[in-house]
Design a protein around this nucleic acid. Structure first.
Lengths: 348, 348
DNA sequence: ATTAGCACTCTCTGGCTGTGAGTGCTAACG
DNA sequence: CGTTAGCACTCACAGCCAGAGAGTGCTAAT
């Protein structure tokens, strides 16, 4: 459905004003603030039309207009211009602590704070999902006694490790041979594929390494469970600054939603299949507690592979233009940083 | 100041009732619910006395009495009986997911949730502070190329590790010799002491290992920074269930306080010098945002050494008897689990 | 010392009213 | 026919008042 040019302008003006002020917009205010060259009566007619089409509504008879979810949708799809207001954004960027976490978990936390501070919403980052990251190299290290440290290196540059006890001592040489063997067999699969192949090998081989192989399989499982898809939320208090969440009930509901990280995870992960920023407005969110919120979601990559998602959760009345820019910027930034990490972590 | 026996009983009854109901207690209700054998008028006189002494107050002229912070203090120091209501507690315990985290970070998270669920307050756990944990053993592992993995094992059973790049290749044999050498030199100090000694050694030695030593020193620094004294907060939404935080302003203030983990950390750490449970009531808290809260704080140990603190933050009107029991139980539990971890992690 | 009784205080709730913002409709206008 | 001015109407909101209820503090009697 295509709107008349003038009606578009009015819709945009209403939404812009509402985002800025948070109060319903009346016809007279609109006529005064913007220069449409028509009277408030005409604006009233236009707004009535827009309401009929489902883009606007009003909370009660004698109040001004506010956008519906559908209105926001149209606004984002057709009206918003994502020119990068670089000067302004760069200014803000300079105010904010930069990302430099060496440890992955710290980096994730920093990123969620980064998103929150710049967007004035809650920032969410889903850590690289190990099942998707590519197995790079495995190493067995004989510690004292019968203990062996298994070290996994994957595309995301994570050195995950797991200490195991063996029944009998084993020579480092043998461990090295085993490691080389596994590297050749398992080359370049994702971690989940590698686990599948390990399982298959386990059935085939009836050799001295069976016990070690078993332990390796078990360890790969644990590594996956422990690190995969953890959710980092930063700046939850930001979101409560906006007056739409200024009731105790809404705050509590939202807090509970944030604590239920697992659901949040599924929500974000399902939202982003590929690259690019997506916006989910109010009722478009499947998750009940989020129905008064909007999410702006993106993903980050290592190489060409999407390894995790990140985004922002805030009131439907958010500064979409700016927030989209922030999420986009952060996802590129994180991809870049993880890329560098990875370069540093692969050997030779 | 010692109170008359009867006045003590009245004070206890008022506080118990207030904790249970949350509403100010009037003289007639008190006379009805408890069997003091005196009339409401007498209770009025007694309550007026208790108010004069600073144990009670009332929000306005025609309201019932509520405890002051001083009243709570007296209640906890003199009136409360910590008999373990084992049957009841055990029942609750069975309802709650148990701790079994293998990874330290996961264990800490679980513990904070555990505290929160059982106490209906926010649960806080400060991770073992590495500077205080005892250095046990160091291991150098030559990976492929010129990379070396430095593995630290400490009393808390943590296997922290750090990947470094060396300028020149080095043989594993030499690494082993170096490791043995360091183990002898550094035996049984805390991590911070070990770092001091490393620094000293660095100045003395002018050998082939200088470069490696430098890297080891740097790594020990990073390990300390990364893992030490992280704060885990669980069940923040629990605390908002109680009506005293049912205003938006208070909720926001508290949320901000929770986000400022560093201050929280100092607060908790300073609170607990040695073993045992401590209670901080309302204005006894140095930190402004916490002035309407109480904290129940304890510590956990590995061996005989206190390595971290844990506790609960909730409204001043909390179920002290139960909460103290929960914190006590959890601190023992965590000490036990970390002890086992440690046993498993030391070699031979 | 304890108690009964009573006046007093203060909060809380519900109803009532006036105000202001903003709409929808109608009739006039270019 | 689109636009505009004007006006009646609606509704949320703040302020005010009165009545109810809870509980105290004081006094006088036991």
């Amino acid at each position: 459905m295509e709107l008349e040019e003038r009606n578009k302008k009015v819709l945009q003006a209403v939404i812009d004003s509402y985002i800025a002020s948070g109060a319903p917009i009346g016809s007279s205010v609109l006529a005064k603030r913007f220069n449409f060259g028509v009277s408030s009566a005409t604006l009233r007619n236009i707004m009535a039309d827009l309401e009929e089409l489902g883009y606007l509504t009003h909370p009660h008879t004698s109040a001004g207009r506010i956008p519906t979810d559908q209105g926001y949708r149209y606004y984002i799809d057709s009206l918003i211009s994502i020119e990068n207001d670089s000067e302004e954004f760069d200014d803000q960027l300079r105010q904010v602590p930069q990302l430099h976490g060496d440890d992955l978990k710290i980096l994730m936390e920093e990123a969620s704070q980064f998103l929150a501070t710049l967007s004035h919403c809650a920032g969410v980052v889903v850590a690289p999902s190990e099942p998707e990251s590519i197995y790079k190299h495995i190493e067995f290290v004989r510690l004292r006694g019968r203990q062996v440290l298994i070290v996994f290196v994957t595309t995301t540059g994570i050195v995950q490790n797991k200490l195991i006890d063996l029944d009998e001592a084993i020579r480092q040489q043998d461990l090295n041979r085993f490691s080389t063997y596994l590297d050749e067999e398992l080359e370049h699969g994702t971690l989940s594929e590698v686990r599948q192949r390990l399982l298959k090998k386990l059935e085939e081989e009836k050799q001295v390494f069976v016990r070690l192989m078993e332990e390796t399989y078990r360890a790969s499982q644990e590594v996956q469970e422990q690190t995969s898809e953890k959710v980092y939320i930063g700046g939850t208090s930001q979101i409560f600054e906006s007056p739409e969440f200024a009731t105790v009930e809404k705050m509590k509901a939202l807090l509970r939603a944030f604590e239920d990280k697992y659901t949040l995870l599924k929500l974000l992960d399902r939202s982003v299949a590929a690259q690019g920023i997506k916006v989910f407005i109010g009722s478009e969110n499947p998750y009940f507690e989020m129905q008064e919120c909007s999410m702006v979601v993106g993903s980050y990559q290592v190489g060409n592979r999407v390894v995790g998602t990140l985004g922002v959760i805030g009131p439907t009345r958010m500064q979409y233009r700016q927030v989209i820019h922030v999420v986009d910027y952060t996802s590129r930034l994180l991809s870049k940083l993880l890329g560098e990490r990875f370069q540093r972590s692969i050997e030779r």
